[in-house]
């Protein structure tokens, strides 16, 4: 585990469960603490960023998906998903693909993101090139770098 942190006189205690929930982290932070955690055997690599804005605690992290949990499709390389947590709501998004998911449980949000990636990949490949507008053409170009059919 590699970590970097800045600690000031102000202390806020947060307990975070890493996905997968192997261990918890007790963080003493000021405005921003950046942690990078790599788990070699996990399907997910997680980077954390914790923000305090106007006394409302929010957290953001980047999760790198390494698999789609699908029988037909797989990832060629890891795909970054931003996870935002605020007031018991969790929002996951891949902004480059206009993919997002809401929920109360992070694993549900991540699973929905996976499904959305697959559904979009299939829909874009079902349409001929001349039937794709500007945004879908861009999405298809991005997705083709990440998703492929399994052998």
């Amino acid at each position: 585990m590699n970590t970097q942190s800045n600690i000031s006189n102000r202390e806020l205690n947060y307990f975070l469960l890493v996905s997968p929930p192997i261990f918890s982290i007790d963080i003493h932070t000021h405005d921003e603490v950046f942690w990078q955690i790599s788990e070699g055997t996990s399907a997910i690599t997680t980077e954390y960023k914790i923000l305090e804005e106007n006394s409302i605690v929010k957290s953001e992290k980047i999760i790198k998906l390494r698999d789609l949990n699908d029988l037909k499709y797989e990832l060629k390389k890891s795909l970054s998903v931003k996870i935002k947590a605020e007031d018991n709501n969790i929002i996951g998004e891949i902004s480059e693909l206009d993919i997002y998911a809401f929920g109360e449980i992070e694993s549900d949000v991540i699973e929905e993101i996976r499904e959305d990636v697959i559904d979009l990949f299939e829909e874009l490949n079902n349409l001929s090139k001349d039937r794709l507008g500007t945004l879908p053409t861009k999405w298809k170009s991005i997705l083709s770098q990440y998703v492929q059919k399994k052998n």
């Binding site: 206009d98 959305d116 979009l120 349409l127 001349d130 039937r131 507008g133 500007t134 879908p136």
Partner: peptide, 8 residues
């Protein structure tokens, strides 16, 4: 007849 966006 061109796909311009998607919505959930």
């Amino acid at each position: 007849d061109k796909l311009i966006s998607k919505v959930k």
